[in-house]
Design a protein around this nucleic acid. Structure first.
Length: 316
DNA sequence: TAGGCCATCTGGTCCT
DNA sequence: AGGACCAGATGGCCTA
């Protein structure tokens, strides 16, 4: 990158591109001169301010202005990209290795904002499937796969048009997932890196809701493409096999609390005590492995705490 | 090789 | 005059 910039600098210093622009300007001036001559022949003179002649000094100033303008524009775009990078980090599924494109970042951010707004508006916690469904609305297939990968979910289970046509081998897997949702593993998903899904992105998971991936999210039918909340149709059919993994043995107290607040944020950061009473005990746990959630480009400790707090706020 | 994504350059427009 | 912003053009890189 540095090298490229240096090359560009060199080119601009050499002035090859500017030479062309300057040639153009000189040509303009010649035209102007011709017009002035025409005016002498009785034809109407061109209105407006007279173009000044391109002297060497003016050419040099123009050149300098152009170089400065290019540098400013570069900086401006870098600033824009920095801002976009910041956005990538706060949107679900951040990954340094597999970056979302600009347009996909904006789309995902829009969906994310919409989903969070709906949570605030309705005061309800969505089930994971519906939440992911909302996040993936209008995203491209690769991005949908990425989001699914972050969550270790099978895109087929939350995209309506795919769920109808699950191949037989997948149906078996899906059935086993429905009955044993916490132990299902499908090896078909492409290997990492995926991004991360931090605590603020996951809300409480109701096991029974996995069979209802087609259900609307907060009374708003996701399949309703006429909804003003979204634009554009769903992504094309997906081809990636799922990979559910809901086993996790927290290794530290922080992890325990963190994992709990993530999956059962209704209990806030109070620990795992209220867990069984709320969700009928361990049989109904739905844990996504920590290594998957914090995988690859894990957020800092500070960010994790912030996310945990954020998730607690949502469910107070 | 086509298509997607990206960085950069450039000229136009608006504003200070 | 100069800076910010924008959109079009262009070329490079990568991947299916």
């Amino acid at each position: 990158m540095e090298e490229k910039n240096e090359q560009i600098e060199a080119i601009t210093k050499d002035g090859d591109d500017d030479e062309d622009a300057i040639k153009g300007l000189e040509y303009d001036d010649e035209e102007e001169d011709e017009e002035e001559e025409d005016g002498d022949d009785g034809k109407p003179k061109r209105r407006g301010p007279k173009k000044k002649k391109m002297t060497k000094a003016r050419l040099l100033r123009f050149k300098m202005r152009r170089v400065k303008a290019n540098a400013r524009e570069r900086n401006r775009m870098h600033g824009l990209n920095d801002a976009l990078e910041s956005l990538r980090k706060v949107v679900p599924c951040y990954s340094k290795t597999q970056k979302l494109s600009k347009i996909e970042t904006l789309r995902l951010a829009k969906n994310y904002i919409w989903a969070l707004s709906e949570i605030l508006r309705s005061g309800k916690s969505p089930d994971l499937m519906s939440f992911v469904q909302a996040l993936c609305k209008g995203l491209s297939q690769p991005t949908t796969n990425l989001v699914a990968g972050c969550l270790q979910l099978n895109p087929r289970t939350f995209l309506p048009e795919q769920s109808q046509e699950i191949p037989s081998h997948m149906q078996t897997a899906s059935a086993s997932f429905t009955s044993h949702p916490y132990s299902y593993q499908n090896p078909g998903l492409p290997s990492p890196p995926y991004g991360t899904m931090d605590s603020s992105h996951i809300f409480h998971v109701k096991p029974h809701s996995y069979g209802s991936a087609l259900e609307p999210f907060f009374e708003t039918p996701l399949t309703d493409c006429t909804s003003p909340s979204f634009d554009g149709p769903l992504s094309p059919p997906l081809s990636v096999n799922g990979n559910f993994s809901f086993k996790h043995e927290p290794s530290s107290e922080f992890e325990k609390n963190y994992a709990f607040s993530m999956h059962y944020p209704g209990a806030g950061l109070a620990g795992t005590q209220g867990h069984a009473s709320l969700y009928g005990g361990a049989a109904q746990r739905c844990d996504i492995p920590m290594e998957n959630i914090m995988a690859y480009d894990g957020h800092s400790h500070h960010e994790r705490i912030m996310n945990a707090q954020l998730s607690a706020i949502f469910h107070e």
